[in-house]
Amino acid sequence: MSINVRVQNADFCQAEEYLKLSNASNCGAVITFTGLVRELVDGDLQMLHLEHYAGMTEQVLEQLAQQAQQRFGVEQITIIHRVGSLKLNEQIVFVGVAAGHRKAGFAACMFVMDYLKTQAPFWKREVTSTDSYWVAAKESDRTAATRWTEGTENRVAS
């Protein structure tokens, strides 16, 4: 079992992360999620700036990965989150899980992303050609995280 957590300015390579995750001989599934910088509704995003609380961020991500490993019995988890200034379509976040079987892998990946969005101290600031503002937290993200404590996660795992 291994955990790899990185918070970095630099971009990452999905293929390299996949190769590392797919090395374990007892894993029949590698599940990955990559989040990208998305265009705004009005199509005017110039830059996305990501701030974080160094020290706490890494600790929260490490704990999330440990919880996912214990809860779903998966072998390896990689979490990469970028900070700093990102342009449209750049990669923001990567969650990769190597598991014995796909159901546990999908569940662990979703568990990590759902909690990352509500627990990890990152903040997005969107910069348009005329303005810049902090992104507001979404109720839908909070709801997504609470399902893991309400026993309804089997909808995902089954």
Binding site: G35, K117, F122, A137
Partner: peptide
Amino acid sequence: CAKNFTFTDVTATVQSGDELAFFPPVTGG
């Protein structure tokens, strides 16, 4: 609120040398 890099309730006790942080709801991912 966080105390020493962990979320905390405001009723938690604080000792000299601790690090506290206050911040808005998070929006990463």
